[in-house]
């Protein structure tokens, strides 16, 4: 166990103080209008993120998992203000950035960075690796030309590439190497917070582990805080300290990694966990996890079900789930869940 992890588990997670919080998200909502008709009037809304609240502690990795369409990428983009929130607030490093103008937010961007999913689409193919990695420094007006070059070659070796690669162009690299370039680009400005938007899902499984380990090592070395978005529970397990499960724009469960993987409370989380294929021939039959198979698809976020949005696929749904929206409540210490099953009146 690394220093940072030990610190987190012993102190931060149990007795958090406001001082340790780097990012605080309060009741964040992002609705996309659906326009239709000749006059392009708003005829509906896609509730991509629908009231999410959480905080991220300095130095930790918060994993966010969910199916495609659950709003996890939108959440990341709203936090970074690449999209404007419809409602709610994002407080980053004690500054409420949720409604700042883009001009005012620009200097803040050196502290918060993002690594995108597709390493082929996220790098401008007309720029050399050196130019790509140097760009954030130029844009932020950091360092002199000489120091920039030094910083760039420092970071490029840190992510496992060679200095000679700086003259190359993105088309000369494989997906995994490109993702290393993306990481170098995000880290060159020494950010405090990095959102990783499914950074390994476009990569081969053998490369995934390499990139994940690199990100873990860099976090330790540079003291980074991650928001790690993924649709793969095993990837999130590898890197996260705490994990949030997202369903149709809401968090249904938020807990420490240990609590979530050993004692999942929400039926959706249980279903996700039981769907991870396990290869274990020695496993006692009695310990075998009960398989929960989910029926149907994710409902449309434009027209979500009433009450609990998961009720249409939940094997335990009852009448209260139709009428009442479950709140995310702290059931055990630092273990939040949004399900009526645990709040019987």
């Amino acid at each position: 166990m690394t220093m940072i992890e030990r610190n987190l588990e012993s102190s931060n997670l149990d007795n958090r103080t406001d001082k340790d919080i780097l990012v605080e998200v309060k009741n964040l909502k992002k609705y996309f209008p659906i326009k239709g008709g000749i006059l392009k009037r708003t005829i509906g809304q896609v509730k991509a993120v629908d009231g999410v609240s959480f905080s991220i502690i300095k130095g930790e990795t918060l994993g966010v998992v969910g199916e495609s369409g659950s709003g996890k990428s939108t959440l990341g983009r709203v936090i970074l203000r690449l999209l404007d929130p419809t409602e709610g607030n994002v407080v980053f490093d004690d500054v409420d950035i949720s409604y700042l103008s883009q001009r005012k937010i620009r200097p803040q961007r050196k502290d918060m960075q993002i690594v995108f999913q597709d390493p082929f689409a996220s790098l401008n193919s007309k720029m050399s690796v050196g130019q790509l990695v140097e760009e954030p420094l130029i844009v932020q007006g950091l360092l002199s030309k000489k120091d920039r070059v030094k910083q760039v070659s420092e970071i490029i070796t840190k992510v496992g590439l060679r200095k000679g690669d700086l003259q190359k162009y993105p088309h000369e690299f494989s997906g995994g190497q490109r993702q290393r370039i993306s990481i170098a680009r995000a880290l060159v400005v020494n950010p405090k917070f990095v959102i990783c938007d499914e950074p390994v899902s476009a990569l081969d499984v053998s490369i995934q582990a390499q990139v994940l380990n690199l990100m873990k090592d860099l976090q330790e070395e540079l003291g980074l805080t991650y928001l790690f978005i993924a649709h793969d529970l095993s990837v999130v397990k590898h890197i996260s300290d705490r994990v949030a499960v997202m369903y149709l724009g809401r968090f249904v469960e938020l807990a420490s990694k240990k609590a979530l993987y050993n004692n999942a409370l929400h039926p959706y989380t249980r279903a996700l966990l039981s769907s991870i294929p396990v290869i274990d021939i020695d496993k006692e039959p009695a310990k075998k996890v009960e398989k929960i198979k989910l029926q149907g698809d994710l409902p449309s976020p434009a027209n979500p079900p009433s009450g609990c949005t998961f009720r249409t696929r939940c094997p335990y749904a009852y009448d209260r789930c139709t009428s009442e929206v479950p709140e995310l409540i702290e059931l055990e210490e630092n273990h939040f869940v949004a399900c009526h099953l645990y709040t019987e009146k």
Binding site: R106, R109, S122, K126, R185
Partner: peptide, 25 residues
């Protein structure tokens, strides 16, 4: 395209995005 979003994420101005990312492409 994602690389334009990426340029915005590092805080690039509109002018820079147009001249460094759009026009070369």
């Amino acid at each position: 395209q994602e690389f334009v979003l990426g340029a915005r994420a590092i805080g690039a101005s509109d002018t820079r995005i147009i001249f460094k990312h759009f026009i070369p492409n």
